[in-house]
Nucleic acid binder design. Structure first.
Lengths: 256, 256
DNA sequence: AATAATGGTTCAAATAATGAACCAACCACC
DNA sequence: GGTGGTTGGTTCATTATTTGAACCATTATT
């Protein structure tokens, strides 16, 4: 691994649960020498990628990352691009539609449109979606990097309902079907009485970067409705992906 | 400069205005050899800090940055912490209140609350604030690291209006007064007819990391209002700083 | 068809990264 | 108030990585 790779892998040691780490700790976890670790940290600190707490001397991720992330968001407006299509889909299906983005190691719900009816599936913004037991998760895994899939199948596979698939082989099969079909179906895998379909929103390199999903009460959902929603959610995901990747330049030009 | 510094300075070439750059362009602007530039880009791409458009072969900032930025925000919730207080201040002053964060070498506006009245000062999110000629800038410099102050005074000191202070000595004096007073006053230094007060939001080590400011049309602003707003903005800044530093651990624990 | 861009690659030479050994502080524990 | 085990931080000869001129293949421009 090159030096910059080492520096970045140092950054990747910080997590939500452990957002501040000491020098020795970082050296131990990274496997680099203490001197090396420190030199890398100093280089990162010099550009605001890492900050050091003056009191504890511990290190944390720096504001420079936020700044660059903001620039990226401006160029790659995931939310702005996707929300109109989420809204359209919610209108045409009259069911809950939610949009998720891959975060630390799971999907995070970043937008939801609820239908104007009493009996509906409720999803909150910020909600975390397990990869193995939700339509969004399976759709994501169908086009995720191999290592992500492996990590998921090797990790804890909690059963949220009696219907949750928890055997790696079964999940793997579901992923394969999703890849062929273009959208995933999750029948009460996460919550009793809820059936969802989802499709992956993909980056320019083909990798999934998020998902769009329709969730509905199973009681009023026919097999025909599943297919219909599946095709619709797939079309929406494809459109979002295309707007994000393909014609994005033209979109930006039009704004300017 | 070390290799990681070079890699990062490559990232810093991307801006809102030019979010996508080609290899030759990056090499030219960075001053690195084309081969070096590419090797660095590949290292960055491998960790999601940079993405390459499959079509144009141009490079852009990657999703890995967003991911890390999100982790930082979780530990250091500048926006979440500050926005409620910005809103309160906007309500009590009935004038524009804006929040800024220090970026590479200048302040960036990250949040704004406008009052519900026609005649008001308009500030946009993302707007850059020169350090020497805005209330926010002076408030920041009053508690910035010495080298930042020196670099600012040694750099270009543009006059944006006839009232802008452009002599290092005058700016230095203004910084000193701000440090004593606790808040800065900028009388039409950046825009004609606008008077602002600001105070620094400070990190645990005492260094400024951002500012909060109230901007109002000079025509309707009395000397008494200035003092009142100054004290209010100072109190808000202190409260934000305390919430960010002091009880932050407890805040995080409570969530878990 | 010629020209000058572009992105991308190679390999000997130059340079920057490495890590064992070293301090100085701090903390816990007998 | 030692004693052992931490911690963060530094040094410098050895080593491995980075470097860049020259190279090719494509793709516009002229």
């Amino acid at each position: 691994m090159g030096t910059v790779g080492k520096a970045i892998s140092l950054l990747e040691l910080f997590t939500i649960d452990e957002p501040e780490l000491g020098l020795s700790d970082l050296a131990r976890r990274s496997g680099f020498d203490k001197a090396t670790t420190r030199r890398l940290l100093m280089a990162l600190t010099g550009h605001g990628f890492v900050e050091q707490d003056a009191g504890t001397r511990h290190y944390r991720l720096g504001a420079g990352l936020s700044r660059l992330a903001r620039i990226r968001e401006a160029r790659f407006p995931f939310l702005q691009t996707a929300v109109p299509l989420v809204r359209d889909l919610a209108a045409s299906t009259a069911e809950t539609v939610h949009l998720s983005e891959f975060g630390v190691d799971t999907l995070v719900t970043v937008h939801v449109e609820h239908p104007a009816r009493a009996n509906r599936v409720n999803v909150d913004i910020g909600q975390l979606l397990p990869l193995h037991s939700t339509a969004s998760g399976i759709a994501y895994l169908a086009f995720a990097r191999d290592e992500t899939v492996r990590a998921c199948l090797a990790g804890a596979l909690n059963a949220f309902t009696a219907h949750t698939l928890i055997e790696p082989a079964a999940i793997s099969r579901s992923i394969g079907e999703t890849r062929d079909r273009g959208y995933s179906i999750c029948d009460q895998g996460f919550e009793e009485g809820v059936i969802s379909v989802a499709a992956a929103i993909r980056a320019a390199d083909g990798c999934a970067l998020g998902t769009i999903a329709v969730a509905a009460p199973k009681a009023r959902t026919t097999a025909a409705a599943i297919t219909e929603r599946g095709l619709a959610v797939m079309a929406a995901a494809r459109e979002i992906s295309m707007r994000l990747n393909g014609d994005n330049l033209q979109t930006l030009r039009r704004q300017a």
